[in-house]
Simulated scan of single mutants.
Amino acid sequence: MTASCNKYYISAIIGFTFITLSGCAPVEREVPLATRIANATPAVAVTARGETAPVGTANADAADDPAIWRNAANPAQSLIVGTDKKAGLYVYGLDGKTRDFLDAGRVNNVDLRDDVVINGQKGILVAASDRNDLANAKVALFLLDPATAKLTALGKVDGGKGEAYGICLYRDAAATYAFIVLKDGTINQIALDTAGAAPTARIVRSMKLASQSEGCAADDRTGILYVAEEDAGLWRFDASATGSTTPVMIAAADGRNLVADAEGVAIAPIGEKDGYVLVSSQGDNAYVAYRLSDDSYAGRFRVGAGAIGGTEETDGIDLMLGDFGPAYPGGLFVAQDGHNAAAAQNFKLVAWDDIAKALGLR
């Protein structure tokens, strides 16, 4: 979490007018946690059914963002890719055990897509926001082998000038794209070409939010991109490469439903257009769901301590519906845990069925 000025957060609440205030208003997370929780809309509690091994970087804010790959042929053998933003990428099984680690340096967020043509064959493409050069953002690309759970580096492509922060992938009939979110709120849409021996890319357009942003998720069905601006709230954009670059606010970080920082973003797609978008309400250790159909508020939940510990100060999240085996028959929600008892940070695994039941979602 950061201690940044909250100017734009105030302007967003009073109606999308971009104004400049003299001085800085206090941000939500400078208020004691107990007060933030007391002021926020009540959140129902769920518990995790699993967790990953801790990342290798101890005593640091290191684990950050997960991405889920579902094995349709053998759901219990699905995989989770997670970042240690100080060191590289981990691959975990659903049992939480480490299957692979690749030293990729400072990679912050991660996403993946299956059935992408990679060097002439279809495979699982993994993309991470690469912060090894803070002045020049890169998208680091990898191939995930589902049989061995091993990652192979494919190369890096240009992400624009600035510090790489968030990333999410999007696919339409024309191409596979990476949206890279720079720390200053710039969002570059990058058309990827991984068909040849080395990946190539081009920035097809840029969008801008007013302040520090990170988490994002794109809905391949509806062509909508969702981005969290930490002190302002959750926005959506047209994800088409030729679409409007004007953002539409879904929810302000009002200290009630959504408590700054607004962090990780994930989508629960249902049918052709319906479902939910979830965002990490980091300021009060909660998660908020909004309906995709009309952007309306659908509920809040926390991952509390049970047989496995709960989550606090979550950065990245991911969510995928479908069968993931006996423990997660309806889908899997994965959240970074910022305080994993005495161990290094890790990721907690929650059954979507538990979340949907607690919130009364269909």
Rank of each mutant, 00 (worst) to 15 (best):
D261W: 06
P26C: 15
R362S: 12
N119E: 05
A217E: 00
G322N: 05
T47W: 02
A298M: 06
K138Q: 08
M207N: 12
G316T: 07
A351E: 01
A135W: 10
L349K: 11
D184T: 07
F18S: 15
D295Q: 14
L134A: 10
I13W: 09
I167G: 01
I10Y: 13
L349T: 08
D64E: 09
L143K: 10
R171P: 04
A135L: 07
A266Q: 00
S11K: 10
G243Y: 13
A48W: 01
L21G: 08
Y276L: 00
L258K: 02
A191C: 13
A128H: 04
A45C: 12
A73D: 12
F18V: 11
M249K: 15
E230K: 03
L278S: 00
D61T: 03
R29W: 15
L154T: 10
R362G: 09
F179Y: 08
V277P: 03
N71Y: 04
F347T: 01
R221H: 14
L361V: 05
E229V: 08
I224T: 05
V227L: 10
V55C: 00
D238M: 15
R106D: 07
I10E: 13
L349Q: 01
I37A: 04
V27G: 09
I267K: 02
P75H: 06
A67Y: 02
A260Y: 02
F324D: 04
A43M: 06
V139A: 07
A251P: 03
G159S: 12
S244Q: 09
A175D: 02
H339Q: 05
N132A: 10
N340Q: 00
M1R: 12
K348T: 06
K273W: 11
M207P: 08
D172F: 11
G309N: 11
A197R: 11
G88T: 04
A178W: 06
K86V: 07
A197D: 06
A266I: 00
N59E: 02
Y297Q: 04
G309P: 03
V279C: 08
D284L: 06
N136F: 02
D261M: 02
M320L: 13
G15P: 07
I270D: 00
A72E: 08
I14G: 04
S4L: 11
